[in-house]
């Protein structure tokens, strides 16, 4: 894990502040996501992980700080401009459109005019990755199983041909066997060259599969480093993993 004279990171978040009305949630959050890596943000409920992702995609306005994507400050752009720059978010709890077919859900991921041109190609790519979705393409998304729904949400995220794919709790509410399957897919997606920012409460899993990790507590980054070292950090183990 050398990181001194390397090129600038794909995403650099600097002193990010974000608030819901009067309630400030993020207090100067800074972190980097280098090209091609899986970076994870771990932390407990209410730490501000989801808010961070929502601020990066732009559905939440930032109150302070900068978001640099490939060196460009995207912090004030509307969400669709950020999607056009190939950032996509797979939101927590999947948020599929229950009464649209699986395929329409996927196509919605390429809704922006600039993305539509390649929608067919990307659809093929998603179906190659998740053959199961191809079988279920005309089924209403609300009637898919939990695992299939998560695949569909992942697929929708991929339809924007992301350079940065942000995953918010992709294992939420899934059976352990399916969790394995989803995370295997995430690693596969990363191998195809997609940089991944993963937010998860499943701390041990997240640390296992990522290279760099940040620990977030009450809206601040309190610990960061290579995931391997965080996994053995005494504080992290006691507070988040538990002794085996």
């Amino acid at each position: 894990m050398t990181s001194s004279p390397t090129p600038p990171p794909l995403l650099a978040v600097e002193a990010l502040e974000s608030a819901y009305g009067a309630v400030q949630v993020l207090w100067g959050v800074s972190f980097n996501v280098p090209h091609g890596q899986i970076v994870t943000i771990i932390g407990s409920n209410g730490a501000g992980k989801t808010t961070t992702l929502n601020t990066i995609i732009g559905v939440m306005k930032l109150r302070g700080g900068r978001i640099l994507f490939k060196g460009e400050d995207i912090g004030t752009l509307p969400p669709h401009e950020r999607v056009k720059r190939h950032i996509s978010l797979v939101p927590e709890g999947r948020h599929l459109w229950p009464r649209m077919s699986a395929e329409d859900n996927l196509l919605m991921g390429a809704y922006q005019p600039s993305l539509r041109r390649d929608a067919r190609r990307n659809l093929t790519r998603v179906y190659d990755l998740f053959p199961r979705l191809k079988e279920r393409r005309s089924q209403l998304a609300g009637t898919l199983s939990g695992g299939e729904q998560q695949m569909c949400a992942l697929g929708r995220g991929l339809m924007a041909e992301p350079e940065l794919l942000m995953l918010d709790e992709p294992s939420l509410g899934l059976a352990p066997k399916l969790v394995d399957e989803i995370f295997a897919h995430v690693e596969q997606i990363c191998k195809q060259g997609v940089t991944i920012l993963l937010v998860a409460q499943n701390v041990s899993y997240a640390l296992q599969m990522s290279e760099t990790a940040y620990l977030m507590e009450t809206g601040r980054i309190t610990l960061s480093g290579p995931s391997r070292s965080l996994a053995t950090n005494k504080y992290v183990v006691e507070a988040y993993i538990g002794k085996a």
Partner: peptide, 23 residues
């Protein structure tokens, strides 16, 4: 038209619509 698809997306899950870049 795709405008209609956007409206239906808003109908079924407004947050997800915003995430995919529908305003």
């Amino acid at each position: 038209h795709k405008f209609g698809l956007g409206l239906i997306a808003i109908n079924q899950d407004e947050d997800a619509a915003a995430d995919t870049g529908v305003n």
